[in-house]
Design a protein around this nucleic acid. Structure first.
Lengths: 224, 224
DNA sequence: TTTAAAATACGCCATTTGTCGTATTGTAGG
DNA sequence: CCTACAATACGACAAATGGCGTATTTTAAA
């Protein structure tokens, strides 16, 4: 029987994951926590009885202490416990951070119960790593990028990774150059309104909500 | 209906994979080849009719031309075709080579039919990447091992080049992380007014007049 | 000790940005 | 032919930003 702990700040998510675990055979819920800090507290309690969870499902974005920081600390203190990061977005930076902090897997929350249970079993039984396919793709891209710092077709990556359209890439380029809506519009011979619409769409695709964050992604990927 | 091609030098393996594909719904066998070179030949034939396979299951160790070399060439010629490497061993070097050559996945041959079918579907439907858990583990280890070259004193560069003060560097750091005035103020325990003053000074020193431009400089110089 | 720099804090105001909507047109694919 | 998507365009409103002041306190250097 695999003992599973769940850490998430949203009660709904905790409930959801809890249900999925109770339905799966071979595993039982050990405890719940609502952020990294309270998780570490509960682990201390466990230390008293020596009754630790085997696997921890850890959300990333949480108040007080986020999941990555928590794993970083917890992996030091309890190296035998495995951590699976559960998150909504496939944020490259966070995947990387999570892996470095010692997480054994990185799954998207949308993953089905079967997948979740399978991942937990695999991690415990075979010491394998669990990754959602989308995450695996990012990981592979990161790997291949690191070895080939120069990418021949830059704009192509933007399209491939985030499904940006040609026009959206034009707009993003303008943003990276520090232009405002009006200036981008002038350059592309469209109204600033159109530019704003495109930018809104870009934000959705990149999972960001500000110019700075969008430009950061573009620059870090060396798109332009 | 997903068209699948199979490339393997062992007749037994071809037969095995062929059977597994014919049993899966939603996909059909397109052609077989026994090494990378003959695969490329058959692809040329396909070009005549425009009837390419959607996904190619490619063995790695093959005589005449190995799978990685074949993928390398084929990905250039037929970028829309996806390649899944199928192999017996989880050889680190080869995983790496395969990823670089443009493979969309790396599966162990022992993988069950369901897994295989699932991987093919995922690759075609979502553009995701398929990896056997063991392979994923290797990939993650490669990722976490490769520590990016850290600059010993990052902030020092900022001070030297632009005479930014310690506090200004703190503020800029917040800006790079996408925080707004209020959030930066909270983090540093000062009022948002103070933050604005500092930002104004930063702009003067960096010779910019917007957040995006300031963040761009910070990122390009790899200050944080 | 005087001086300069750094860090702190506030107000005002125009501009920019982010987020809602809605809506029309063209075009490629089923 | 119909549908989905891309690209275009507009309006309204709240929030954030940039630029202009001024001003006090602390610290370090001359």
């Amino acid at each position: 029987m695999i003992k599973v702990a769940v850490v998430d700040d949203k009660a709904i998510n905790r409930q959801s994951v809890r249900e999925r675990i109770s339905m799966a055979s071979g595993m039982q819920l050990h405890f719940l926590a609502d952020n990294g800090s309270s998780f570490l507290e509960k682990m201390k309690t466990c230390a008293a009885s020596g009754d630790f969870p085997d696997v921890v499902l850890m959300d990333i974005d949480m108040p007080v202490m986020n999941g990555i920081a928590a794993v970083n600390i917890a992996k030091e203190l309890y190296p035998k416990v495995d951590f699976l990061m559960l998150t909504v977005f496939d944020d490259d930076e966070k995947i990387f951070e999570a892996i470095k902090s010692g997480a054994s897997g990185y799954l998207l929350k949308e993953e089905s119960m079967e997948k979740l249970a399978e991942a937990i079993l695999q991690v415990k039984e075979f010491g394998a790593v669990a990754m959602s396919p989308i995450v695996a793709r990012k990981a592979m891209m990161m790997l291949s990028r690191n070895e080939q710092p120069q990418n021949p077709d830059l704009a192509k990556n933007a399209r491939d990774e985030y499904n940006l359209t040609d026009r959206e890439i034009d707009i993003l380029k303008g943003m990276v150059e520090g232009l405002d809506y009006r200036q981008i519009g002038e350059r592309l011979f469209v109204s600033p309104h159109t530019v704003r619409t495109h930018i809104g769409n870009i934000y959705k695709k990149l999972h960001v909500c500000s110019k700075v964050d969008a430009v950061k992604i573009a620059i870090k990927r060396q798109w332009f």
